[in-house]
């Protein structure tokens, strides 16, 4: 038994931990990140299961004046708003919408940003010059204002339109970061070697360079995800997000604009505000653990 365990130890010592092993160790060391990760997974799973299987949106959004500002209690877990609508149900549906939009935006912008960034960084030259000028253009225009303008102009928009509009302004940041990494990675000798071995450019970009940037891509995607939850909430708060009939975290928080509600009916806005706060913090903790795992100098484990 002793010799077996020794063998195992020496095996682990001889090969430096890679990929998931490093991430796993980082989470074991950082309890806050571990708790955050488990929390995010549970909350997300709960929100999606409840929203799709158990909660009927029409029922929740039905106005019943008898329950106006009902306090948290037996009938409503977290009370009701001025239309007598269940806050808890709205919170779950709102969270589902925010998460869906954030996931959609993150996926679209990541794919597009990574592809554009890699192509710019690898080829350089005039391709890089042209695309970077386009990216500079997108970064300099005030995106929030333009999103609001778009939302106002489009007569009947849905969740999908919102995802596309937000994505339109969110990809340049990712593309820029990926480009800067691809620029240095593309000058490495293994890329030169692949060229002399007859591998074509697109295979080099996506099979050789991209896996070597995977750690930075994971980190960036996670942190962007937190930011994208924020964008949808901000738009809804300002009244330009999802259509008013759809429950949203931003709408719930915006109830706090009314001093009466802010002071007396705290249950209308506080749960949503806390939910956003805790969600964002948790995702950031997880993202930071990923970031430390990606950079050997910052690692805890």
């Amino acid at each position: 038994m002793v010799s077996v365990s020794n063998d195992k130890n020496s095996n682990i010592a001889s090969s430096p931990p890679t990929g998931f092993q490093v991430i796993f160790r980082e989470f074991i060391k950082d309890k806050l990140a571990l708790v955050s990760l488990i929390g995010i997974i549970l909350v997300t799973a709960y929100v999606f299961i409840m929203a799709y299987l158990f909660i009927n949106v029409d029922e929740i959004m039905r106005v019943s004046l008898r329950d106006k500002y009902a306090a948290p209690g037996e009938k409503f877990l977290l009370g009701a708003d001025q239309g007598g609508r269940d806050i808890f149900g709205q919170l779950v549906i709102g969270a589902k919408n925010s998460l869906e939009i954030a996931i959609g935006v993150t996926i679209i912008t990541s794919i597009f940003g990574i592809i554009v960034g890699l192509i710019c960084g690898y080829f350089g030259g005039w391709i890089d010059n042209i695309i970077m000028r386009i990216i500079d253009f997108f970064i300099t225009i005030p995106s929030l204002m333009l999103i609001i303008v778009f939302v106002t102009i489009i007569p009947k928009y849905s969740q999908y339109d919102l995802v596309l509009i937000i994505s339109l302004f969110a990809w340049p940041g990712i593309a820029r970061l990926v480009r800067s990494k691809a620029l240095s990675e593309g000058k490495r000798d293994y890329v030169n070697a692949s060229k002399t071995l007859g591998t074509n450019d697109f295979i080099i970009i996506f099979r050789e360079i991209m896996p070597n940037l995977s750690s930075i891509l994971i980190v960036e995607t996670t942190l962007n995800f937190a930011g994208n939850i924020g964008i949808e909430t901000v738009l809804s708060y300002l009244g330009f997000g999802l259509p008013p009939s759809t429950p949203s975290l931003g709408t719930l928080v915006s109830y706090a604009n009314n001093p009466l509600i802010l002071q007396q009916y705290w249950w209308c806005w506080l749960p949503a505000a806390l939910f956003i706060l805790i969600m964002m913090l948790a995702i950031n903790f997880v993202g930071q653990a990923f970031r430390r795992a990606a950079d050997a100098r910052q690692r805890l484990g």
Binding site: R188, D189, N192, A193, T196, N212
Partner: peptide
Amino acid sequence: NRDIQMIFQDSHSAMNPR
């Protein structure tokens, strides 16, 4: 390109670590 090949100075960086 098939008939002419190269050996690199730094063999470590000339191989994809992944």
